[in-house]
Each structure stands twice: as C-alpha cells, then as structure tokens.
Amino acid sequence: MGMAITHAIASGMGGMRAAGDLVARMQIARGMKIDEAKAHVAGKLKCSVSDLTDPILMNEARDELGLGLLHPYGGSPKCMEAKFNIAELLEIDVNCVQRFRSHLSASNL
C-alpha cells in the first residue's frame, strides 16, 4: 500500500482528485499514448495539460461538468451517473455505461 501511495504522489495523476481517471479512460478506450491522452482530456475540459493534475481547478471542472467529485454533495452526479457524463464529454464508449443503457426499457432512454 505504501508503495502505491508513493508512486501516486511521486508521479501519479491523482485519479479523481484531479483528472487522472479521465486520462486513463483515453488509454483504455482509444489506446492513446500519455501525451495524446492528456491533450485530448485537456481539450475537452478546456484547460491546459498542466491543469490536469491541479486538484483545485479539476474539482471545479468536475463539478461543473458532472464528472463525479472526491467529496460529493447531495444531488451531485456520482459514480454511474458521472460515468455517463464522462463518456459523453470524452466522446468514448464506456462499457458499463453502454450496458446500463442497454438494460433500460426504451421508455427510460
């Protein structure tokens, strides 16, 4: 555990403290190399690449775009709801979002 924390602090993007999960999604969905993935996410968030690891700026962006917050508040999009928004923002297919959608009856879409 200590090692994972060390890596996360030494060279990690911080996950949903910032925008690490979003950059990871571009590698997963499109196989993008790191620079391309960061540039894609920065473009979608309308920020610079260096902003992607800033927890203050990214928290604001996540809140505004409904991408899930480290400290969620009542009524803020969370988890699966946030993943719907992430898929839409990044223009990618997220497997569980697709399946969630496929499980809903047509009238719920």
Partner: peptide, 25 residues
Amino acid sequence: KFVSVEPGNEVILTYDAGTLKIRRV
C-alpha cells in the same frame, strides 16, 4: 528523502491485484 516528477510529467497508474493488497495487509 522524497522526490517527484516535474509538474506536467505525471502519468496514470494501473494496478495489479489491487483489491488483494488491502486484504493482504
């Protein structure tokens, strides 16, 4: 004691046996 990358050079992290490590400790 602790060093880190320059801002902007951060990378994403994937894990192996993630949930196992919590159990292991």
